[in-house]
Simulated assay, not measured.
Amino acid sequence: MKEIVFDKFYQLYQKESLYVLDAREVEELDNEQLHYVICKAGMRSARACQFLAEQGYDVINVQGGMTAFENL
């Protein structure tokens, strides 16, 4: 499973238009898009990434989740 530490994710987020998926509120996904998956602490998003990757989606788990954002 691909992962990214929150600090690197946040730097990318500030510079680029990223598709961010909240694992707590999964919606229909574009299977041609790279998805950065985030949740509160990173556990739920890791499970969602594993499932989505098995379904053929290109996903990256954001380690630390929104808790890491709150600690910036």
Rank of each mutant, 00 (worst) to 15 (best):
V20G: 05
F51E: 11
E54T: 12
R44K: 15
N61Y: 01
Q14D: 00
L72F: 12
A46S: 11
L34E: 13
K40P: 08
A53G: 04
L21V: 05
D58K: 11
Q11D: 08
E3S: 08
N71A: 11
D7E: 11
L52M: 12
E16I: 07
V62E: 02
D22Y: 06
L21R: 00
V20L: 07
F6V: 01
L21S: 05
A23P: 15
Y57A: 10
A48E: 06
Y13N: 04
L34G: 08
Q55V: 14
N71C: 09
R24F: 07
G64T: 01
R44T: 14
L29S: 05
R47I: 00
Y57G: 10
V5N: 07
D30Q: 09
S45H: 03
K8V: 08
M1A: 09
Y13V: 00
E27C: 13
L21C: 10
D58H: 10
N61T: 03
C39E: 08
A48I: 02
D30F: 03
Q11E: 11
E28L: 10
Y13G: 00
V26K: 14
Q11I: 04
L34I: 15
Q50R: 00
V59S: 07
A53C: 09
N31P: 11
M66E: 13
E27K: 13
Y57F: 15
D22S: 09
A46R: 04
R24Y: 12
E28K: 14
Q14M: 06
Q11A: 09
K40H: 15
Q33D: 03
V26S: 07
A48L: 12
L18W: 03
F9I: 00
N31E: 06
Q63I: 13
V5G: 01
E54P: 07
C39Q: 12
E25K: 14
F9K: 00
M1K: 11
M66S: 08
K15Y: 04
R24N: 10
F69P: 00
L52F: 14
K8M: 01
V26L: 15
V26C: 10
M43H: 08
E27A: 15
I4D: 02
Y36C: 04
